[in-house]
Amino acid sequence: MQKDSIYAEPLGKIQDFNFDDQVADVFPDMIQRSVPGYHTIIQTIGKLTAKFQQPNSSYYDLGCSLGAATLAMRRNLSAENCNIIAVDNSKAMVERCERHLQSFRSEVPVTVQLADIRQLAISNAAVVVINFTLQFLPKADREQLIQQIYNGLKPGGLLILSEKFIHPQNTENELLIDLHHDFKRANGYSELEVSQKRTALENVMQPDTLKQHANRLTKAGFNQQTIWFQCFNFCSMLAIKS
C-alpha cells in the first residue's frame, strides 16, 4: 500500500482536492488514516447486502472509487441473477477499480462505469451504496439524486449513505472536528498535512447536517431510516423503501 504524502511538504498554492492519479495511487492509505471506522463501514455494507439481497436485482455502488464497497457487496451476494454496477466520475479511480476487481474471482458480474452518478438511470435495485460521495456533489443536486435512488429501488430495497456531517451548534461542531484531527494525527499525519488537506477540501466538500440528510430521505419517500454508525463527524445511515 502506497503511503499518502500528498500534503507532507509545504505547497505554494493549494489546489482544490481532486480524485486524480496522485490521489488514486494512495487512496487506500488515505481513506484508512482519514476516515474513522472506514473498515467497519465497508464490512457492514457487505453484511447489509446479504440481509437485503433480492434475486434478479441490480446493486449499485455510486462513487465507487477503488471498489471497496463493490467487493464487500459481491462477497456477500448469494441470490440468483444479481449484478453490480459500480460508477465513478474519476477516470483514474475507474481504471484502478477495474484492475482491482479482476484480482478477485466471483460469479457475480460487475460493470464499472465512468459516469456522473447524477445522470445515471437507476432501476431494479435491491441495494444502493453512496459511500462518502454525496458530500462532493453540489448541494442543489443532492435531493434529486436521492429521489432517483428511491424511485429506482425495489420494494424492500436498501440505501446505505455514508457521509461526513456538520453539527448545527458551533461548539459541538468544532469539538467533533478537533477529535477527527486528533484521529488523523494519531495515524501519522502532521499538522501541515492536516491543515493543507483541510484547505484543499474547503471548496469541493460541503457536508450537510444530520437533520438535512434525514429530511431529504423523508421527502424522497424513505419512511424507515436510521444512523447505524457514527464516529466523530462521520456517520453511515440506512434507509429502506417500504
Rank of each mutant, 00 (worst) to 15 (best):
D25I: 14
S195D: 13
L201F: 11
L11S: 10
K91Y: 15
H100F: 12
Q54V: 09
F17K: 01
P207Q: 04
I45Y: 01
L145P: 02
D208W: 08
L217G: 02
R74Q: 10
A115S: 13
S90F: 02
I117C: 07
Y59F: 13
V94W: 05
G152K: 04
M30C: 05
D116V: 08
G221S: 06
A220Q: 00
V194M: 05
N233W: 01
M73T: 02
I84C: 00
V128Q: 05
R74G: 00
G152W: 00
E191D: 15
L153V: 06
D116E: 06
R96C: 07
E95C: 08
L158W: 04
P168H: 04
Y7C: 08
K219D: 11
E95R: 14
P155W: 12
L153R: 03
E172W: 09
S90K: 06
S57P: 10
L161D: 02
P28A: 08
F222D: 00
H180Q: 09
Y60I: 00
F183V: 00
C82F: 06
R33I: 04
A220I: 03
I41K: 00
H181R: 12
L159N: 01
E163P: 00
E191P: 03
V194D: 10
I160S: 01
Q43A: 14
S58G: 11
F183D: 05
L192Q: 11
V23Y: 08
R216C: 12
S162F: 03
I166K: 11
I117M: 14
F104H: 15
N223K: 13
Y60A: 01
D116K: 04
A68W: 02
A214R: 03
I240L: 13
N56I: 06
Y150Q: 02
A92C: 09
Q32T: 14
